[in-house]
Write a protein that binds this DNA or RNA. Sequence first.
RNA 1: GGCCCCAUCGUUCAGCGGUUAGGACGCGAGGUUUUCAUCCUCGAAACCAGGGUUCGAUUCCCUGUGGGGUCACCA
Length: 482
Amino acid sequence: MPPRVRIAPSPTGDPHVGTAYIALFNYAFAKKHGGTFILRIEDTDQTRSTASSEVAIYDALRWLGLDWDEGPDVGGDRGPYRQSERTAIYREHVQTLIDNGTAYRCFCTSERLAQMRAEQERNKQNPRYDGHCRGLDPKDAQSRAAAGEPHVIRLRVPEEGETTLHDELRGPIAFQNAEIDDQVLLKSDGFPTYHLANVVDDHLMGITHVIRGEDWITSGPKHVLLYQGFGWEPPLFFHLGLLRNGDKSKLSKRKNPVSVDHYRSLGYLPSTFLNFLAILGFSMGEDRERFSLDEMVAEFEWSKVSTGGPVFDPVKLDAFSGDDIRAMDPAALRDALVEHAFGGRIDTLVELSRERINRLDDFIPYVSFFFGGEVDYAAVLPKMVPKKREKKETMKILKAYLEGIEKDDAARAFTVDGLAEFSKAFAQQHGWKPKELYPLLRCAATGRTASPSLFETLAALGKDRVRLRLRGAIEALRVAPQ
RNA sequence: GGCCCCAUCGUUCAGCGGUUAGGACGCGAGGUUUUCAUCCUCGAAACCAGGGUUCGAUUCCCUGUGGGGUCACCA
């Protein structure tokens, strides 16, 4: 039976390189065995999921060439592939769990839970559900629920014994049941949590191999318990090591650009990027580390996959990238260069520069700062800190702005209007005058004191480049003498 | 902190009981190149520690240490 595998990203924020990494291994394994690679959107968190993020995931994966056989946009006969469209399925299935005692209704309020956790913390106990509603009479619980009393549904984990997760890469991993929390399966808004949705969907979609990051190992036993509760055969589990920052912590945007879009907009070739991701956890053998996706597929074996958490090293990525660019034939490179430079935003750049250039030849020098990663702040550093402001608070405001463009809905889309709206409110909120903040942002984002209208400029630079520059500016300020 | 995962050069991947411990990036030194980059040559650089098992451990087992993950009505 050919394998069926899936990746199940959550459409929150930018497409993550970790998602691409896991997708690559799923894809390689599936294709090697003539199997099916499925994309499922896990949008059960209604407060954080966005449609734009979902589209961004499609774009990023397609850019890399990791095309899926079934998914929300391409269809398939095991759909729907968007969890928010499957809520009836989860409710129906959770009922069988309630009926056979694997799950129970819990009416505890979030206040009580918070209080409980606080007390557990005080007593130096591990925070976990205390089983308050475990002993409720199912009939009573049923009628309270029918009366509309808000509640969740929890997994009834056995008090004794142990549950073993069989990881095909690491061997059996045993957990004491007493250590496993009575996880919420169905939230009070009627949506499932990851655990329930994931198990139900994997089973219904016929997933044979679950290939995911090792941060899921801990919740593995809950999934095993759910398969048991349903009386289903669990899939085979493979937990890959997590991509790391230079300091070995889990890859995070605090310390590294983690958006696939970032690497795309800075002009790495998709094949290079994929190859680089591949060597982080896969070895071809024969000391060979340059290979294509097809070659990886052809050679894919689990014995060639390592479980350590590799550091994502951008320096080596650059080395690969340089090699690949040099290997391109001149015509192909020319096309790639022209496309990268002018493909998406040529009209914008023309519009932004037309009033400011006198000769055609002025164009390239004028728009040069719209390209490239880091810029040199030496020339503008003395002008960055506004009068009446300290270096420290200047750095602080830049950091806050950096966070703000992540969180704020208007700013996140990175449109001219959205940025203007956000920035104005941001300045006011932080007690900065636009006159102080905007020139600072211009310097930080462009390395210049003059540019087209700030928000037009930021939008044309693109979110990832702006983010990179802002971080660079903060660093430049930090090491500056005053 | 509890539980769980991981452990070879700075980084990454090899090695799967006996090797001068290998390749790549990075780093250093030379060379080619008017400069820079490229390219070529050479070099420095690792088996976390302690116990076992074994004729023999980087390799198998245990303990410790270190790093990481996870402990939500987020995935």
